[in-house]
Design a protein around this nucleic acid. Sequence first.
DNA 1: TGATTGTTTGCTCCA
DNA 2: CAAACAATCA
Length: 772
Amino acid sequence: MDFLEGLNPPQREAVAYTGGPLLILAGAGSGKTRVITHRIAHLVHAHRVPPSAIVAVTFTNKAAQEMRERVEGLLGHSYALSELVVSTFHSFCVRLLRRDGTRLAELRPGFTRSFTIYDEDDQLALVKAASRQLGLDEKQFMPYRAALARISHAKNHKLSPPDVYKAAKDLKASRLASVYEEYEGRLRQANALDFDDLLLEAVRLLQHDEDLRRAWNQRIAHLLIDEYQDTNRSQYELMRLLSQVHQNVCAVGDEDQSIYSWRGADINNILDFEADYPNARLIRLEQNYRSTQNILASAGALVAHNRERKGKLLWTSAQGGAPVGFCEAYDAEQEALFIADTIESVLFGNPGDRVAVLYRTNAQSRQIEEALRRYGRKYQVIGGFSFYQRAEIKDILAYLRVLVAPQDSVNLLRIINTPARGLGKSAIEQIERCAREHGLNHWNAILRLLDEKQLPTRAAAALEGFRTLIEGLRETAAVEPLHEVVRAVIEQTGYLKTLEADQTPDAEARQENVTELGNAASDAAARGEGIPEFLDHAALVSEADAIDDQARVCLMTAHNAKGLEFPAVVICGLEEGLFPHSRSLESRAAMEEERRLCYVAMTRAQKRLVLTCARYRRRYGGEHAQASQPSRFLSEIPLEFTEVLGRVAAPPPQVDLAGDQFLVRQAARKNLYTGKTYNSLENIAEFFAARGVATNLPATGAPRTQPPPPRVAPSVRRSKFSVGSSVEHPRYGNGTIVRREGEGEDAKLTVSFPGHGLKKIIAKYAGLKTAE
DNA sequence: TGATTGTTTGCTCCA
DNA sequence: CAAACAATCA
C-alpha cells in the first residue's frame, strides 16, 4: 500500500512530511480531507505510528465520523484503529473532563466528573434568573441575549467578574459584572459547565494537572487540526498544551474561509502559525478539483476584495463550465419560486444531482420551503429549530438531568411545574428564597421546606408529590436501561397524558417528537449508552450532523454548508443588509468576514451556481415590504463570468395561499408533511389552476406582459401539450414537458430530453408529437 | 393557580 | 409572523 500515489506534488508533500510543525493552507476544494486521511494512513502504515498516538480534531461530529471511516477504508482492519482519536474539540474536552477531570475540583469548588452541560437556552435562563435576583430587568439593564454574549466574550478572554467590574466605564458595564458573577456562581452551584467552559476548563485542567498533561503529551505523537482558521483562543491553547513533547502539529485551514469570529474564532491563529512555530513548514494546496473555472474565478474575484489574507490563487484544469447565473426577483416569494424552478431544471437534466439552497439567516428558509412544497419537491432543512431544542424534548431531557444531578437548578426549575402540578409562581418564589437564604441548591431547599412543614397545605402536597415522583424515577434510573427510564419519565410525570389531552394543533407533532425521543433512547441503549452518555450526545450534536447525503435538495445557512459540496448551489437573499448582514455594515473586519462567508458558499458548487436577490423584502412579516439594494458582493463578481437569468420590475398577481401555507408551516415545523402532497407535475397544474394562476409562472422572473389571470378559477384547459406529459421530438426523442407558456399549437414549451437537457420549443414548428 | 387572551418585540451565524 | 411575556379572568 502506498498512500502517496494518486496525489499531486504538494498534496504528496503534505502527506509525507514528518519534520515537525506543518501548516497546510488548503484552498476550497483542494482535496484537504483526502490529504488528512492519507496522512493518517501513511503515518500508521509507513512510519509505524500506533493509531493511539494520533489525535485528529475536526469541526463537526459528522466530519469526524467520515474521516474515521475513510481512514478505515484506506487501512483495512489490520490496525487498532479504534484507538485512533478523531473528534471535535468539544467532544474531546468533554471526554477528558469526564474521565480525568477529578482534579479540576481543586480549581473549581464543587466540580465533579458528573457535571451537566448547559446549552444556550439554559445559559439564557441562568442570565435571566441572575438578573432578576439583582433586581435588573431587560428594560433598565440590557437584553438578556446581549448580556450573555458579553459574558461569553469576557470568559473567552479570561476576564473574571472583578476584571469586568474594574474595566467598567458606566453603570451598565458594572451591572453586567455583577450579573456575570451571579451567573458563574449559579453554574458552580449546579455543577454545570456552559459551552465556553468545556474548552476553558479542559485547558485549566491540563495546565493544573501535570501528570495528566504529561500522559497526553507522551501519548500524542501527531496532532492534526482541521479548519484551523476557525479555532479560538482555548482551542489554540489546547493545541499547545497537547503537543509539548513531540511538536508534531499539522494544522489545516484556509484563511479565506474563516467565518466564526463571532464565536471567538481568531483568524490570527492561522495567520501567526509560522511565528508560533518558527521551524514550521508551509504547504499550499492551490489546485481545485471541485468547481468549474467560471465558479472558481467568480469566487476568487470576490474574495480578492479582502485585505486581511495571505493571498493565494486557486486554479483548476477544468475549463469554462456554465456561467454563474443571476436573478433579481420582485420579492422574496418570487425569488423562492424562481429557486424552485431552477431546482426543477437542474434535477430534470440530472436527476442524480444534489442541490443546496444557501441563505444567510434561518428565517429565509420558510418561503423557499413553501415554494418547494408547491412543486411537490422533497427537501431537507438543516438547522433552524433542531430536534433537541424543542420544548418537549428539552423537558424530558431536563427530567433525566435532574435524576442524574439533583443540584442542577436550571433544569429542576424547568420541570418543577411541567406538566402543571399546582406549583405556581408563589411556591417557586418560596423555594428560591429558601435556597438563597440558606445557601442551598434548589433540590435541597425543597427537602428543607418539606421538613419544616411551613408551606400552605396545597403547595406542600404538590411539592411532596413532586419529590416522590423524582425519587421514584431516580430508583428506576438506578436499575433500568436508558430507554425504560425515558419511558418511565414520559408516563409517570403525566407528560404524555397532558399532550394527549391538549387540543392545540401542534400537540400531535409534539407527541410524535416525544415518541421519537423514546426511539432515540432505544437506539442509544442498544449501543450500550446510559443516561450520561445520552445527555452528552444530545448536548453535543450539531446541525450539520443531521445532513442526509441522499437528500436531493438541502436548505441551510451558509455557515452550515462549510466543508460540504454540491453539484448545484443557489445562494439567495444577496441584498445589502441581509447578505452582507446589517450588523456587519459598520466594521471593515465584519464586512470581510461576510465576504468570506459568501466565498465559502460559492465554492461549495461543483457545476452550477446561481445567485438571487429580491427587490422588495418584508421584515418581521410586516405589512409593507421594504425596497432593498442588491448586495455589493454581486457587483464584485466580474460580468464576464455571469449570465442574467431574470430581472423583475412589476409586482406579481396576488395569490391567496394562506390555507396551504398553514399546512406547509406545520409540516416545516415537524420536518415532515403528512397532508396532501403534490407529487406529479399534473398535480401542480391542478393545484395552481384551482387557484386561478397559470402554471407557467415566469421562471426567469421576466416581467409579466399579459394581464394577471382572473381570480375565479377557469376550467382547466386540457391541451395535449400539458406540463408533465411525455412528448416525442424528431431529433431528441422522448422528453417531458417542464413548462408551458401560451396555449395550443403556439405554446412555447420547455422540454427536458434525457441526454440532451432542457430545450425551448414551439410545438407546431418543431414537429412535436405526444408520446404513448 | 392556571388557562386564556392581549401585547410586544425581535432576525444573525453555532458547538 | 410567531414566540415570549403580561394581564386578566375563572
